[in-house]
Amino acid sequence: MRHNFIDRYANLDSPLHVLEARTKILGYLSLIAALLLMPGRNDVVLLVYAFVAAILVGASQVPLGYIAGRSLVILPFVLLAGIAAPWTNSFDGARFMALATRSFLSVTILLLMTSTTPFPELLRGLQKLGCPRILILNLGFLYRYLFVLTEEVLRMRQARDCRRAGRAPPRVELKLLGSMLGSLVLRSFERAERMYQAMLSRGYAGEFPVLAPRRFTWRDLTFLAGIALLIVSSFRYAGR
């Protein structure tokens, strides 16, 4: 099975991939915050942000279809807001469009961040930015164990499907799912403990090593300066 479905495009080699993890976390986070905190509904500023996001997507080598498909996760909320719109005191289509645009742009920026950074590097960046150690440890374990668990689930599902024909009534189905989940917890817990012991005995000290970590260079500085310039000038424009 495919083992890299969470950071599938993270090992390409584009102008965005060579940036350091901290740069990307800080840069994209401030871009999202600025986008959301922009006063009023300033359509021109939103357009400029869309423009910048499009340039970044183009520069990132990540396929356009992937970004477009993944950013559809916001659809349920947009639909709910759209359905609810007639009940608000004054239906305001422009405001609704601005909300949807902001939401869509933030998802795109978030996607750019995760699909241009390998997960271990992202963790290193978060740790250097002061994220609590236990969270970093836990995220590392999540990444490590996820594949083990997925394989276990696939094996269990195959075993269940081999032993039955058709579907049971919903009540029984849920109960079956419950005991499958229970035994999944047990099996993976026992396996996780063995793996943890093995990792400890091989010198694991709470950090997943990164081969040749990226350094903070002039490229990062340029990137951050560009983003700062964009944010400051857009706020000055919107504040007028």
Partner: peptide, 8 residues
């Protein structure tokens, strides 16, 4: 390890 595996 218990937290790690349960988060996964």
């Amino acid at each position: 390890p218990l937290m790690g595996v349960l988060s996964a």
